[in-house]
């Protein structure tokens, strides 16, 4: 069985002296070249789920107030305005909380940034002036609340075409 490693350097003496002391065997070589388990694992997972580093770069540029379009693996899409970003420290635990209003009802979706089922995240709109605070939980059901994001984006696109 491969998990039994019986190859050991038994001849190595860690302690030696004139008096008869018990032999202490040399330690086994360090695993992962001595790197800490968590950092080793997180780097490995980031390389697996974000090989180009694109998502990590995106996470740095995103901010609460931006409007995004998320494309899933089954080509379904979801629009929303970011109200909070949960950032991990060099790990795959990042996620984005985005809010939209569909049929007058507030809908919130949490988007795991490094989940392999998410194909693309596109920034659709960045406001000229941001609301204060990193997390916009306070906008819910106030005058700052989001409208229908898809309608807003189509109106914006039409206005842009007309001005051109």
């Amino acid at each position: 069985m491969n998990f039994f490693n019986t190859i050991r350097n038994y001849s190595t003496r860690y302690l030696s002296g004139s008096r008869a002391r018990p032999i202490v065997f040399a330690p086994l070589p360090p695993k992962r070249d001595g790197e800490h388990v968590m950092s080793f694992l997180q780097n490995k997972l980031l390389a697996k789920y974000d090989p180009t580093g694109q998502r990590r770069k995106l996470a740095e540029t995103l901010r609460a107030g931006d409007m995004i379009k998320v494309t899933y693996g089954d080509k379904s899409t979801a629009f929303g305005r970011i109200i909070a970003i949960k950032r991990g420290h060099n790990n795959v635990g990042h996620n984005i909380l985005m809010r939209n209003k569909i049929g007058g009802l507030g809908v919130e979706v949490r988007v795991p940034l490094f989940n392999p089922t998410i194909k693309n995240i596109e920034v659709m709109h960045k406001p000229e002036k941001y609301l204060s605070r990193r997390k916009h939980f306070y906008i819910r059901n106030t005058k700052h609340d989001v409208g229908n994001i898809e309608d807003f984006l189509t109106r914006e696109r039409i206005a842009k075409n007309q001005s051109n």
């Binding site: 330690p27 388990v37 694992l41 997180q42 693996g73 795959v92 795991p112 490094f114």
Partner: peptide
């Protein structure tokens, strides 16, 4: 016990998982 991480299954399910180091 070394800490907890996010783990993605093949079908996209997301789970909390615990990392254990087996050292010598």
């Amino acid at each position: 016990k070394k800490g907890m991480i996010t783990w993605f299954m093949e079908n996209g399910e997301q789970h909390a998982a615990t990392v254990i180091e087996i050292d010598n």
